[in-house]
Nucleic acid binder design. Structure first.
Lengths: 191, 191
DNA sequence: GAGACTCCTTGACATAGATCAAGAAACTAT
DNA sequence: ATAGTTTCTTGATCTATGTCAAGGAGTCTC
């Protein structure tokens, strides 16, 4: 259990196991119900989350409408890192799709514990690299692919999401309307 | 000259001045003519560039058509960092819009010089953070803004680009066709 | 200064995806 | 199971942007 969790987190954050255990020991556990928020727009929330069990999504508001930029499942970190880096209020909302058990750590603690330790730079580097890769792929897909290709890529890269997440949220993540995703699926099925 | 340059680079890479001078001393200078490439698709190019004088753009190929993701001007770093991080061939092309003087450093040297030095983690962290912020903003704009808003934001945030870069390249950067940008400009002018 | 480029504009039409409206299907709770 | 809610599908339009085609404006070369 704990060891499997640590192993999974180690894939994202490749530190020596003892450092990783030490790092994780600084987190505290919270529980959020389905529909509750971890972060809301406008908040100055300087906490890093790490999902133990459950599932969340991040969205921006576009004239009152949700536009989802990410889903996060078990063993994944979740935060508004942009807001943290730029020291500005959160621009996004992070909401639970399922009841979720979350480890949280304030960035202040992270900083103070690690500031005289090269692991701080390393953790920061790895976090930022992972986020860069995610957002790079996202932007590239929006630049180069049409809606159908984005959906096909999602199916092949994250099939787990389709089992757990309602289709209208998937649509938002793909940056199309639910009607459009429904039509794309129909078209693909007929091939 | 050199001090002003170092000062500008220091804004991107806030290291103590002596570290920064040391870091920059490892680069070598190259000169590229307008139209020449620093990186081409498929290459395993593991070099970091830093523009001293000139102007370049990065683009992806979409069925033979250029889709520009970034312009880089003086004092800015340029590389295919995604390709470096994932250790895969370059997916993008980096081409000079003007004759360009470039400082270059292989990532191998960077690694070997710094691997026993927390500055390596720090440089990596700052690079990745900057790229994360850029790509985050780019993806967010593609998700949330229409073409006209993207153009208006560009005007206000990077007016220098409009002076130096032909409009059809700006259009590609905004992810629209030149005809569309022309119409957007006409519409804005008539307001 | 006449071609010959390259870039920008404009018009007419095409298309991907959005919007609106109505039902059908799938959950949820009693 | 039944009613009530939420999600998904489908059809009929609409809109932003793309495509194609032509012409104009600017620049370079001889």
């Amino acid at each position: 259990m704990i060891t499997e969790f640590i192993k999974q987190v180690g894939k994202t954050l490749p530190l020596p196991e003892s450092d990783l255990v030490d790092f994780l020991s600084k987190f505290k556990t919270i529980h959020l119900k389905k529909g509750e928020y971890f972060i809301t727009e406008g908040q100055l929330k300087k906490e890093l989350g790490l999902i133990v069990k459950g599932c969340m999504f991040c969205y921006y508001n576009k004239d009152g409408e949700q536009v989802i930029d990410e889903f996060s499942l078990e063993n994944e970190f979740i935060t508004d890192y942009f807001s943290y880096l730029t020291n500005s209020p959160a621009e996004k909302n992070v909401k639970c799709i399922e009841d979720t058990e979350l480890l949280v750590l304030s960035f202040e603690i992270l900083k103070s514990e690690y500031s005289n330790n090269s692991n701080y730079e390393k953790i920061g580097r790895i976090m930022a690299e992972g986020l860069f890769i995610n957002w790079h792929n996202k932007a590239k897909s929006l630049m180069l692919d049409d809606a159908e290709s984005r959906y096909l890529k999602l199916i092949s890269k994250r099939p787990d999401l389709l089992q757990r997440i309602p289709q209208y949220l998937i649509a938002s993540y793909l940056n199309v309307k639910p009607e459009t995703l429904s039509r794309i699926r129909k078209k693909i099925a007929s091939k």
